[in-house]
Design a protein around this nucleic acid. Structure first.
Lengths: 223, 223, 223, 223
DNA sequence: GATGAATGAGGTTTCATTCAT
DNA sequence: CATGAATGAAACCTCATTCAT
């Protein structure tokens, strides 16, 4: 799971947020700097106060600029939030298995994948929690989150099908629903632990979730 | 899973919401009726518009009474929401296994339990979604939700431990973390399906989640 | 032109402003009082500062109530303005001849009508000017003003036709266009005089406009 | 009425707008071009959106230049509007009779004059409407409009007086008030038709207004 | 000359909550 | 118990104007 670009192609996974209808990106270097400062400030304020409690004036105060400047780059709180997600995008992924080659040991692959996911989540827990909050508030974000979830579920389902064809996974399981269930299990654990603050040790999370995932699939090690 | 009182004892599971500091219940029959109308109206409005977008005036309009009357029975929007949850409480439960006797077939028990859970969720999807929304907004509700989750996880963990002691479940699994993971898997599926609107068939959900749950535990049928 | 109700029937002349979609009128006496105070305050402020420069806070300050109270009765500045017009409606009319009986001396009727119009305009000059301003700003008011103008033109055109049939007015004139032209002449004089501040003497205005009106029609006194 | 310079001398009629305190005209050819583009863009935007709703950024976008450039040539929105009026000035005139020689047939002169006025108004209806709007908003423009109106009224009054001296017009009419009334009649018809959008046929307007004007004056054709 | 990012005063609007009737 | 008018803090957003590049 080191090479993200190999496993997530743009045609497979929808973007984090809708970027149509957004303001033009700045053309000057100064503009780029100001916009970046606003995005960073927004992340700070959102993570500190939550999306709803954050006021535009808090963000501009944090970015040391005026409210007017905010509106030069964004048209709404939702729009900065989208920009915050985009800026963090490279460090955020979805639970699941990368493509599995015959040569791979599937359990090792799942373990590596789960560990990467939990570690990512731990680093971005506050942001993940925000994302969840906004998804319950804003219809657009909710739909987008669902779409992304289903896209990742489809990718995982393909891996499961492959393992079923190879006779290494219980062939009677519905690949798609199984994929949803196992991804959900992992993401829910991560959410409770790092977004809601239970803060369970990553090693324990990886250990249990990998064991359960492998067991659930009935994964047999190839001779 | 028919007798709820047998499986959820009040000393084990925290209440849905904090009821201290709330207004006294009405004494007259007329008062009881008015309060009930307000609770019903609140559920209707909340489910239609979401917690945030619902205004107190919408609720009183729906209940055909004045704002003043609202404050006779509740002190805030949060408080009516608590009352709505309480009124619906009897029809809402958490995922998990009821107490398992030696004589039981554990897989059948898990299946029955999962089915009950998904069906409940399906009936109350809008409300479950609301609960999730409010938990991301209101610190009290969030904490309460976490506490309830952990309480149920502890109960399920006990069942798992018992099965481990009986040699029917993989003894190397951490019972508590396993319990969290499997409950999370089921509740996440239900949430996506019925709160977020994917609306997958209950039979498929029950089938897959039960199979995975049993597989994950490595449940062996006793001879 | 003394009995307005005899000459302007509701089915003939459109209302001054659109009252659909407006807030419900207050039910209590206190509410009626407050609303009336706001309307009076609005007229004062509008006439003093003009529609555009008037701020809601000026109006509520004048009415000695809070901004919130304003929104209890109106949803916008346009809406109070409508209410101001309605409150003044009984003292505002359009230029034109009342219904003319055979027995009448048409010139005397025109003169009385014009005098009534100019005097009304003089009393309400500031408001008339406001009305003109708002009509150039707000599409709804503009359309409504046009409609009212045409309705009055139609009424006057009927009187002219009647006089043509009686052989007392030049039969080759187009009654409708003539009606528009003569009404326009009078209302323009009144506007320049009392809304824009030229303040010409009413007697001169009546004298000239009546003479021109009669001459223009080629009115002959019946033997 | 083809030779405007013969009938409107600069010492008689005030300018359309105050040009003192305005920015210096550009010296370079490039500057002249840019300024002209801004004036054209401003007219387009003003006519499309109205004076109030037009934003400076809309104008510069239409002119394909930056806001900064706008301020190189103008100091305010009012000032571009003045420039727009000046650019259109040659094609805009006021209602009234040109100087009448004894040899003329006054009715023919009035008719020609009215026709020219209505045709001009039809070509510039949007701009005339704008002018009216700005006059209700901006004190300077309002005063200027009044002054111009009175100046033209004085000119027409002189023609009327002359005709009275020649015994061709009712000598008991007040020339100045008569002039105001008849000019107002014509300009009001034009305004309703072409600025407010009633769009009556020019021929009908010319026919009726000329007939009424001649009748009103009691114009007798000389033997 | 041309650019366009930065400014911020000043307006509008919402709605939970109070309290006199 | 019921009413609903009154409140006002607190958020949002706009756009003419400045000025460093």
């Amino acid at each position: 799971m080191t090479d993200r670009s190999a496993t997530e192609r743009l045609d497979e996974v929808p973007a984090l947020a809708d970027t149509s209808g957004m303001k033009e990106p700045p053309t000057t270097a100064r503009g780029v700097r100001t916009r970046a400062a606003l995005v960073a400030a927004a992340r700070t304020v959102f993570e500190r106060d939550g999306f709803l409690a954050s006021r535009l004036t808090d963000i501009t105060a944090e970015a040391k600029c005026s409210i007017g400047t905010f509106y030069t780059y964004f048209t709404s709180k939702e729009e900065v939030f989208t920009a915050v997600l985009e800026a963090a995008q490279d460090d955020m992924l979805h639970p699941g298995m990368p493509r599995v080659d015959d040569a791979d040991d599937p359990v090792a692959v799942i373990e590596a994948s789960n560990r990467a996911y939990f570690e990512t989540y731990q680093r971005n827990g506050r942001l993940m929690r925000l994302q969840e909050q906004v998804a319950t508030i804003d219809e657009d974000f909710r739909r987008r989150r669902l779409e992304r979830g289903e896209a990742f579920a489809r990718r995982n389902a393909k891996s499961i099908e492959k393992l079923q064809q190879d006779g290494r996974v219980d062939a009677t399981l519905d690949p798609m629903m199984t994929s949803r269930a196992l991804s959900g299990m992992v993401s829910r654990l991560a959410y409770s632990s790092f977004a809601l603050g239970e803060d369970w040790p990553v090693d324990d999370l990886v250990e249990t979730s990998t064991r359960l995932w492998a067991n659930a699939l009935g994964l047999t090690t190839p001779r």
